[in-house]
Amino acid sequence: MSTTYLIVMIVGMALATLISRVPPLVLATKLKPGRKVQRWLKQVPPAVMAALVAPAIFAPDGQIWISYHNADLMVGTATLIVAIATKNFYATIAFGVCAMAFVNLVLN
């Protein structure tokens, strides 16, 4: 493939992305969703995070594995406890990363 072809493709895809994302964003800034919609939208980030994290914790090798030998599950549980206790996003992330690093260093 030529360099010109690649540049045209990249610019074309950037324009397609821009055209498909800007109009809804402009419309969304002018509309004020109702209370029910706002309450529902507040639940989207935790639901997405749970959908991303749960398979890694409960099925680290592709099969569901609920056991105290499952290091991912143990670290995830401890991190959940820290999240509930502190209600601090950064403290939770820092604890989870440090706990997982510690477990990987000790167990591997």
Rank of each mutant, 00 (worst) to 15 (best):
V44N: 04
F95E: 01
A99T: 04
K32N: 13
L107N: 12
L107R: 14
V44R: 08
A78R: 00
S2N: 05
S2Q: 08
I57M: 04
F102W: 12
L6N: 13
C98W: 04
Q63K: 14
L18N: 11
I81Q: 10
M74H: 04
A56F: 13
L73P: 00
R39D: 11
L105R: 05
A99K: 02
G34A: 09
L18F: 14
S2K: 03
V8T: 10
A28W: 03
N70D: 07
T29N: 04
L80G: 06
W40C: 14
I84T: 06
L25S: 07
T79M: 00
K32S: 08
A59I: 01
L31C: 08
A47S: 08
L41V: 09
K30G: 12
N104R: 15
A85M: 14
V97I: 14
A51Y: 03
A94W: 05
I57W: 01
T86W: 01
A28Q: 03
A91Y: 11
A50I: 00
F95N: 01
R21P: 02
G96L: 04
L41E: 09
G12K: 00
A28G: 07
K42T: 01
T4N: 13
V106T: 10
Y5P: 04
V53L: 14
F95Q: 08
T77S: 12
V53M: 14
T4C: 07
K87E: 04
N88M: 04
N70W: 01
C98M: 13
M1Y: 05
P55E: 02
R35L: 13
H69E: 13
P24L: 10
V37N: 05
L52N: 02
A54F: 10
A78K: 00
K32D: 07
S67R: 01
T77L: 11
R35S: 12
L52V: 07
F89E: 09
G62C: 10
K36M: 14
W40H: 12
Y90W: 14
N70P: 09
L80E: 00
P45R: 05
N88D: 15
A78Y: 07
A83N: 00
I64E: 03
M1T: 15
A56R: 10
A50V: 05
T77F: 09
P23I: 10
I64P: 01
C98T: 15
V53K: 00
S2Y: 00
T3L: 06
A78S: 10
M49A: 14
Q63R: 10
A71Y: 09
A14W: 02
L73T: 02
A101T: 15
F102N: 08
F58N: 01
K32T: 15
Q38C: 11
V48R: 08
G62D: 04
V37G: 04
A99Y: 02
A83K: 03
A78F: 11
K42V: 08
T29E: 10
F89M: 12
P33Y: 10
A94M: 07
A91H: 07
G34F: 06
K36N: 13
R39T: 15
S2G: 14
R35D: 12
I7N: 07
A85Q: 12
